[in-house]
Simulated assay, not measured.
Amino acid sequence: MRVLTWSALVLALTAGSVITGPAHAQAYDPRYPVCMKVYEGGRFGGGEWIDCSYTSLPQCRATASGRSAMCDLNPFYAPPSPPPRRVHRRHH
């Protein structure tokens, strides 16, 4: 009876992942401060994706114009670190 219970549990868990499909990781490019989320619909589902390759909101909005898309700030943007401060030495 235990084997039957465990088999049913494994089958239920496996069937659940087949129905919902695999999860997709979303890749945000931390090198760019702006991302465009593109929506594509249609009879067969289409999809959506995120394109983080824009340096400004106006640049992204110009590309998104006329499309089913929106622009937003990249939550994973890592701005470049400032250059190290130079130490000026005085000669006496």
Rank of each mutant, 00 (worst) to 15 (best):
D51E: 14
S65F: 11
R61C: 05
R31K: 14
G16L: 12
S68K: 13
A23N: 08
G46D: 03
A15D: 03
C52I: 15
T55G: 15
M70H: 12
R43Y: 06
V34S: 02
A69M: 11
Q26V: 15
Y28A: 08
G16N: 10
G66A: 11
C71H: 05
M70N: 12
V38E: 04
G41H: 05
F44Q: 07
S68W: 10
H24L: 10
W49V: 07
P33D: 02
T14M: 14
S56Y: 08
A8I: 12
Q59F: 05
S7E: 04
I50C: 02
W49T: 11
W6L: 10
R43M: 10
M36C: 03
W6N: 10
Y28M: 11
C35T: 00
A62F: 08
G41E: 05
E48G: 09
K37C: 01
A62W: 05
G47L: 00
T20D: 04
P33F: 03
A62L: 08
G16Y: 09
W6P: 01
G42H: 00
K37P: 01
D51S: 12
M36V: 00
G42L: 01
G41L: 07
C60P: 08
P58E: 13
V10T: 14
T20C: 03
G21V: 04
A12D: 02
C60A: 13
A8W: 06
R67A: 10
L13C: 12
P22V: 14
Y39G: 04
T63S: 13
V18Y: 14
G42A: 01
V10D: 06
A62G: 15
G21H: 04
C52R: 12
L57R: 11
D51G: 01
G16T: 14
G45D: 03
D29W: 07
R61D: 13
L13G: 15
G46F: 00
R61E: 15
L9G: 05
D29E: 09
Y32A: 09
L13D: 06
C71K: 06
M70C: 03
S56Q: 06
P30Y: 09
V34G: 03
G46I: 00
A69C: 11
S68I: 12
K37Y: 07
A8L: 14
E40A: 11
G46T: 00
V38H: 04
G45H: 00
L9N: 01
A64F: 07
W49K: 11
R31Y: 07
L11H: 03
Y54M: 09
Y54D: 01
Y32M: 07
V10Y: 11
L11Q: 05
A27K: 14
S7W: 05
S56M: 06
E40G: 08
W49A: 07
F44P: 01
S56K: 05
W6S: 08
V38W: 05
L9Q: 04
E40F: 08
G66T: 11
G41R: 07
G46K: 01
G45M: 02
C35H: 03
Y28K: 06
D29S: 12
P30A: 09
C60R: 10
V34P: 04
G42D: 02
Y39S: 12
G41N: 08
C60D: 09
R43D: 09
Y39V: 15
S17D: 06
V38K: 00
V10F: 15
A62I: 06
V34N: 02
V18G: 11
Y39A: 10
T14Y: 12
C60M: 09
G16M: 09
S7T: 10
R31E: 12
A64T: 04
W6H: 12
S65P: 01
